[in-house]
Design a protein around this nucleic acid. Structure first.
Lengths: 185, 185, 185, 185
DNA sequence: CATGAATGAGACTTCATTCAT
DNA sequence: GATGAATGAAGTCTCATTCAT
């Protein structure tokens, strides 16, 4: 059920999109907060898992970053309704939800943090990099890219932006613009 | 009125913070959407104007970028309640608002676009830069930085992040990490 | 089924306690009202029958009153869940139920009425007794005693109150406080 | 507002009877529980206060009992809608309300307890009286009398039952049936 | 101009009831 | 006969908006 996506945050609309009656939603979720939070948790989990799978067991920071972007854009790119929920509806004022969002995002943020830390340790990223800022650049850029995609109607292929986004982030992180990713794939 | 800030998006609270009665708000604004949109417009206008003032009449792309970040963080940094409205409450599901947001953001986005275009033309930024992606990296990084600041309680000085954010963006845009901004100020 | 008691008036819980599925309940009862009304009817019937059995065929008004209290407190005292349904859930605002309750209570009220009338005729109760009021004192005192028992958690033995309640009622009805019940049992 | 009475426990009906819109109710009460509890508290307070006023400063237990019944029946007798709320709607299954009812009834129950204790101490009531049971007989009889009045449509004058109810209670409490109340008034 | 009490549409949620299996 | 997932009517409550003062 939660995969089918929603293009509205009202329970009635969620139920309608899912093709069930209003009350049916409450057989599977405790309340509205639970619905949104479940969707977020599931999607973030999927992105993190997928990025790890793609990455394999030879972790290279830049490759891992590329895989994360890939996983993120692929997961949301094939489901605009889901993306809409994550980008728009979950970011509402309800403090009860907002409090949980940070916690749910932690695996994602940890993945990002690990990438950056590893990159600095290995010397692949600039040593004077502020880790906090780096994390925010990565998530902010990815998030804003998805945002823009959603608000223009999700008309183009989001995965086409994987490489350009990776490129600009990599450059910001490494200070080099000559990373030859192609040779490694 | 709209400068006084809000830490909630309910009209009653807006009125209370502004020190007027609920009904009085409707003498100045058409409806709630109008309030939020006005705040956004005013704030964005302020940021753009301030960044232009700071920039002066000798436009240099990187300097302009720094001024934009400065203007953005200074404007929101001294008014967390206002920032909260922009980051949280304005991003609601109401499609009527969302439609206007893009238009209001245009001056800001144009400023960003001008900076990037100028930077590429002048050779200060990488020629293979995707302009669209660059714009999203800039706004996304700045926005996410403000977001994180708000959600951790706006406890630290946002303006302290001007230089680190500029640094990471500049590197991503130029491919160089040796920009000596200090020598010019 | 209806003997197994309930500590909630929701049909789902009734079904769970009875060990059947929700829908099964509707094979035996027309609707929820029917369930509650059936429980009431059965329980009242049981109390009246039991009090008659205890009383035997030599009806003496005071003894009959004692037997009624005995039957009432014994029936409910061993099944707090059932008592809870009768004292709490059946007294809901639904006028459709309320209308039936009076009718179902009639055998009980008739028993009470018969006791009082017989008592007056036989000269064992005060002649100036208002029959209506006497009936209400009897039922009201018994009912309130069960009520208090339920709302304090049904922690003590309800049947221990048979004699004290009988004592106070008998005194109110006879004007004498020297009825030596013990000698007759 | 809370004096106007209600003949239904739905907030919408309460609002309708009070002649206001649904939302208006919430300007004066926190929630539905608050409405019912407020009515109960106010009415119980009124009965207790009125009975004290009637009683004057020369407390005599039996006279005090008569005044309590008088206050109770007068208060409810002139407002059947209010009585209906107290007798029917407040006794619903909602445990949150039920928990508060006992506390709100305390002043009333304390008044009753004081009367009985004083009566026993003064020797006007039977020494072997079980105080707990006596309290329940008093409240139970009064309550059931009001109940019966409500469920038969509140068609007769409730205050006409003050003396008969007092008579039966007094007899039950004193063991005498010759109390000459008239000589004292 | 300003007020703020009142409004009422609409949101979330519960639960008695149904019906395909 | 039995099931229990699904239903959807109806209830409580919020809050943007109005208008008599």
């Amino acid at each position: 059920m939660s995969e089918s996506g929603y293009h509205g945050a009202q329970v009635a609309r969620i139920a309608r999109v899912a093709g069930v009656a209003d009350g049916t939603v409450y057989l599977y979720f405790k309340n509205k907060e639970d619905i949104l939070v479940s969707i977020l948790r599931e999607t973030i989990g999927e992105i993190v898992t997928l990025s790890t799978l793609l990455e394999g067991d030879h972790p290279e920071p830049l490759k891992a970053l590329h895989k994360l972007i890939e996983a993120h854009f692929q997961t949301l790119g094939q489901n605009p309704a889901l993306a809409s929920v994550l980008q728009v509806h979950i970011r509402q004022a309800d403090p009860a939800i907002r409090a949980q969002v940070a916690e749910i995002m932690r695996p994602y943020q940890q993945t990002v943090a690990r990438i950056v830390e590893m990159g600095v340790v290995r010397g692949e990223m600039r040593s004077k990099l502020d880790l906090r800022i780096a994390r925010r650049m990565i998530f902010g850029t990815i998030d804003e890219t998805v945002n823009a995609w959603i608000f223009t109607g999700a008309k183009y292929d989001l995965t086409a932006l994987i490489d350009p986004v990776f490129d600009v982030l990599m450059t910001g992180l490494t200070g080099r613009n000559d990373y030859d990713r192609e040779g490694k794939e």
